[in-house]
Amino acid sequence: MRQALKERQGEALQAKLETACVAVCGLGGLGSGIAVMLARAGVGRLILIDFDTVDVTNLHRQQYKANQVGLYKTEALAHNLKEIAPYLTIETHTEKITPDNAVALLQGAEVICEALDQAQQKAMLANAVLEKLPGAYFVAASGMAGLGPANHIRTRRISDHFYLCGDTVSDVDSGMGLVAPRVMLCAAHQALAALRILARPLNITNIMED
């Protein structure tokens, strides 16, 4: 599998990704999608954090299966990722992220993907990471609910270490809930942002204008 990834993505990028560590905070539609994409791309180590269990209402957009309802999302996703990428190293934390435990949970991650559900939790994590882990890159998401246009989902660089994906306005609490393709689009923006950040030192042509 390593050879296949090297042939697909090039040896330099693959070597970089293999030694990389990315944290995924929240394992719902965004987080489970981000983790699957990063595992497939060959990222070597993932830190997966979520306190919740798989619910039947998650199956329309999250990367779990009907026979996993009731399992902790950390356990279920680790199992699914190992089926996709057996060589992947996974660290799971089945607990809620708070300002007090964020540093301990996220230490060592070069890129931290925010994939939480509540706006207040997203803001809490943004503040905690940007204040306390200034060396890490933070890739957050805001605005992916409903059936709005795909092209309104975008990635914006707020500052050197802070990227924001989404349309910034489509709130899950106003109007329609979350729909798989739009959530997966936003997750793809986040996963791609993470890969672009990890690839940056390689100076691969044409990939770093944003």
Partner: peptide, 10 residues
């Protein structure tokens, strides 16, 4: 200044 205001959904 960049003021990032989050909305829910994940």
């Amino acid at each position: 200044l960049e003021v990032v205001s989050f909305v829910g959904g994940g």
